[in-house]
Amino acid sequence: MGTAMRGGRRRRGRTAVALGLLGELLITLGLVLALFVGYSLWWTDVLADRTAGHAGDRLRQTWGIPAAPPADGAAAGPAPQYAAGDGVGFLHVPAFGRGDQTLIRMGTTAQVLDEGVAGVYEEPYRSAMPWDAEGNFALAAHRDGHGARFHDLDKVAVGDPVVVETRDAWYVYRVAGALPQTSKYDVGVVAPVPEGSPFTGPGRYLTLTTCTPVYTSRYRMAVWAQLVRVDPVDARRTPPPELR
């Protein structure tokens, strides 16, 4: 009997050791996951905001350099052409909070969006630019992590203003509709005449897209707006009333 009791104690001892090791492993795994979540949802925001801030400052500095005048008798040149990653301007969404602004750059690759900006769609439809006679200026941004510029996109309501700031003009849009959820493969939402939007023919539109629900990338949401006014930039760069 003594031998059996000693054998039982040894088995219980080994079980206790194994459970202890398993517990420590689970605690370690939990800490690693917590650190990863912290990195994804906080530290990437810090880095992205810093990068976007520097890039935005550089863009505004270039705006301070006078453009070369056309040669005598020559017509003004064509609208500027932008390559992937180039800065275009700034997006202002008052519904996101007072003073909110987001740098706009060409492209929607992870390399672009991870820097805390709104990216201009170049495919499957190449976006029209705000100054074009017609078309859809379609933008994407992260909802969580990497700046989370569109985290509150679901708070934008019909009738809200959205303003795009470029070197020479303020483009004032008015929200006309939204699609809370659709497939992330639904490219029609960024078409020249966005599918599912209130628009039925060509016009001057703005589309904002991001992932949904929060903290996932399973679906896509879209907000659509229509241009209502273009205000030229004055010497003091006074923002339009919608931003004051």
Score class of each variant (00 low, 15 high):
residue 4 A to W: 02
residue 5 M to C: 09
residue 7 G to V: 06
residue 7 G to S: 11
residue 8 G to S: 13
residue 8 G to E: 12
residue 9 R to F: 07
residue 10 R to K: 13
residue 13 G to C: 10
residue 17 V to H: 03
residue 26 L to N: 02
residue 27 I to G: 09
residue 27 I to C: 12
residue 29 L to P: 02
residue 35 L to C: 13
residue 36 F to M: 13
residue 36 F to Q: 13
residue 42 W to F: 10
residue 45 D to M: 10
residue 47 L to T: 14
residue 49 D to T: 04
residue 51 T to H: 06
residue 54 H to Q: 14
residue 54 H to K: 14
residue 61 Q to A: 14
residue 62 T to F: 03
residue 62 T to H: 07
residue 63 W to L: 05
residue 63 W to E: 03
residue 66 P to E: 04
residue 71 A to I: 04
residue 78 P to T: 09
residue 82 Y to H: 15
residue 84 A to C: 15
residue 85 G to K: 10
residue 89 G to R: 11
residue 92 H to C: 07
residue 92 H to T: 02
residue 94 P to S: 05
residue 98 R to N: 07
residue 103 L to Q: 01
residue 105 R to M: 06
residue 107 G to R: 05
residue 109 T to C: 08
residue 109 T to V: 08
residue 111 Q to L: 12
residue 113 L to Q: 03
residue 117 V to G: 02
residue 121 Y to R: 05
residue 122 E to K: 06
residue 126 R to I: 04
residue 131 W to V: 00
residue 152 D to Q: 12
residue 154 D to N: 10
residue 155 K to M: 10
residue 156 V to N: 02
residue 160 D to W: 00
residue 164 V to C: 05
residue 167 R to S: 02
residue 168 D to M: 03
residue 168 D to S: 13
residue 173 Y to D: 00
residue 173 Y to R: 04
residue 183 S to V: 09
residue 187 V to C: 08
residue 187 V to K: 13
residue 190 V to E: 02
residue 193 V to K: 11
residue 210 T to D: 06
residue 213 P to K: 13
residue 216 T to S: 14
residue 218 R to S: 14
residue 221 M to P: 01
residue 223 V to F: 02
residue 223 V to H: 01
residue 224 W to G: 01
residue 225 A to V: 06
residue 233 V to S: 07
residue 240 P to F: 07
residue 244 R to K: 14
